[in-house]
Design a protein around this nucleic acid. Structure first.
Lengths: 117, 117
DNA sequence: ATATTTTATAACTATAGTGTTATGTATCTG
DNA sequence: CAGATACATAACACTATAGTTATAAAATAT
């Protein structure tokens, strides 16, 4: 899977409130499918499908404990998604295009920046 | 729109490689629909639909310049998505559940942690 | 062996996403 | 005014998601 495909799968998996709630629950501890299903007004197969998408994205892994398949949260996919978003930090922190503006300014005035900026 | 709905819209918008590429392009500068469409082997209406999803998620805003509708990247939605992901930082940085383990340990041994942990 | 518990899968419905072509609308240009 | 340019929207096809119920399969418990 390419990085782009992994990001597709990860962001798709994160784009659903049930799956985000499942991840939040798994922060507390590993949990079986039944335990994860309990808070939701939804059938068990529906939860199993959500878990499948989370697993496909690498956001969870699954073990074995008797009949149970305990789910465990995995960090790598979350790390990659966060890494991708980080490249936009400047956009929301307000220092976006200040450098661009400065460079353009330097170019147009040949090293004599305008005062009003 | 609730925060959950905004996260739905944002992660859905980010779950497509064309839309991620458009955002990357908009880091360089604002751009018209035609300019954004140019690199892609895709019709103009397809790009317009992608832009609609980005706009719905608040990831871009649109201005007016004669016939053109220049697109501008917006930071807030990206910030909210990153903020949500940040709560999982410990998971991928490896310090996840170390505190949990320590607390459980303290509880079970009444303040006398086991050595092997 | 049989029954129970836990989970997965199949078949189905409904809705949403992604693309197409054709066409409509707004703005500029000659 | 007429044509060109930039963009949006409608109608359509196809695929993917999200849920359902019914059933199968795996492991445990009696």
């Amino acid at each position: 899977m390419t990085e782009s495909e992994r990001l597709d799968a990860t962001f798709t998996a994160l784009a659903d409130p049930t799956r985000r709630a499942i991840l939040a629950r798994l922060m507390e501890s590993d949990a079986s499918v039944m335990e994860l299903a309990e808070p939701f007004a939804m059938s068990q197969p529906a939860i199993s499908k959500h878990l499948k998408m989370l697993e496909r994205a690498g956001l969870i892994s699954r073990g074995r404990d008797a009949q149970r398949r305990p789910c465990h949260i995995e960090g790598e996919a979350l790390k990659e998604a966060t890494g991708w978003l980080e490249q936009y930090r400047n956009v929301w922190e307000g220092n976006f295009r200040r450098l661009d503006a400065l460079l353009e300014d330097l170019q147009s005035t040949r090293g004599r920046p305008k005062r009003d900026n």
